[in-house]
Design a protein around this nucleic acid. Sequence first.
DNA 1: CCACTTATGGTCACATTGACAAAAATACGG
DNA 2: CCGTATTTTTGTCAATGTGACCATAAGTGG
Lengths: 246, 246
Amino acid sequence: MTRPDVPCSAVAVDLAVLTVRDRCLHVLVVVRAKRPHQGRLALPGGFLEPDEDLDQAAHRELAEETGLDAADLNVHQLRSYGAPDRDPRGRVVSVCYVALMPDLPLPIAGGDARAADWAPVEQLLAEPDQRAFDHHLLLTDAVEHARDRLSHTTLATTFCPPEFTIAQLREVYEIVWGTQLDPSNFHRKVTGAPGFLVPTGGRTAGTGGRPATLHRAGPATRLHPAILREPHSEQHTKGATGHEYR
Amino acid sequence: MTRPDVPCSAVAVDLAVLTVRDRCLHVLVVVRAKRPHQGRLALPGGFLEPDEDLDQAAHRELAEETGLDAADLNVHQLRSYGAPDRDPRGRVVSVCYVALMPDLPLPIAGGDARAADWAPVEQLLAEPDQRAFDHHLLLTDAVEHARDRLSHTTLATTFCPPEFTIAQLREVYEIVWGTQLDPSNFHRKVTGAPGFLVPTGGRTAGTGGRPATLHRAGPATRLHPAILREPHSEQHTKGATGHEYR
DNA sequence: CCACTTATGGTCACATTGACAAAAATACGG
DNA sequence: CCGTATTTTTGTCAATGTGACCATAAGTGG
């Protein structure tokens, strides 16, 4: 059905699957088994199938790589990448998705036997030229995207198990943002944001301190008021990722 | 160069070019000259050329449709659309860009002689099924994107001429958001946001009121503090566009 | 000079925030 | 069993941002 008079490209869907693990932000990576970039770390992904929506492809790839049903996870399109030379095999336009998930037992070795494992984001970002294709750029953008979203949405709860304490949630923010947050003020903010947290009635025990009340994620998606990343101040002319707004 | 063993798609780049005109938000549309959707209004766009980056393609299309050099305009990728049946001719994945510009003299009839003209966004959004392809969805997302960005970035100035008054800037916010803003409080906020506005020294004249000082866009891109859309309050569980975060 | 219009500045009550203190509720060591 | 350390949770206070609203400044047109 594709028309012969129109330039034709392969369309790939790549995934930046993020989680918080061992007090660090991790991303799911695979070791490439084939050329090009054989042996290098890459984001999991694959080509769009003929009768598939982009979102469907992302969910399928996620299921193949992690064995997880993405239905209740958080998978969102980030942006597309189409530099003409980004894949030496030919023209490939890649649609990148970001998925956030709690620290589940393990990424099952993928359906197609590629080795998939968690890698610390900080370490990967420190060596810009070791990734396959332009996946360093994809990862940079994905992390920045996740950081931004934590401020304005209730996304942080997707890094947590179904029931969690406010300290666990605070740890997520601290790790993703690389900052320290005041426990007392953080508590006030998140409990004050309508629809963010729902107390389950349960409490923790055996942690050597006052037991914490357990919470579930509430119905809200946008956060009001937002939880700000920077202690305020400063001229904000920065923007790291190369996809600067305005 | 494209490998035969991989599903192949056409990749299109579509543009939602927004401007403020006659106190309404307008978008640049073309009347489709060919089937499918002949005679219907569509967002301008075209297919990705073999040796072109996505951003380059967006700039090229913008130049073709408006005759404008996009260098100093504001063109950003929104997201991609890839429903299998979105184009009856075959598989087409479309990367949508949003461009914001001041109300320049006119959109020159495009290089390929298609009629390009401004259409009021409100009117287009009111008739969901009259657009070509899924361009109603693209437009919905583009407008929501622009609205969100006004709060947190200095994007609003790109709707204004090089020199503008604070009242003109306020009008941009009011029109894009569909709200009324208090002139006095708005003035306090925008003049207080560091790097947002730079007074040029000039003043208006002949407007039947106190002359306003003229400003240029400042160096800042992010806005601090943000200029909030809603007078506060309310449970924010909404999200209109179908691409809900969380 | 006066009415009118628009821009800009000020006031005040209120909400949000960060820094910090204090209280509550547990574990653990003696 | 008591005191101390630890962690959660609740307050307090000053600084700042915000909305509602009023006042003043500085033009135009009669």
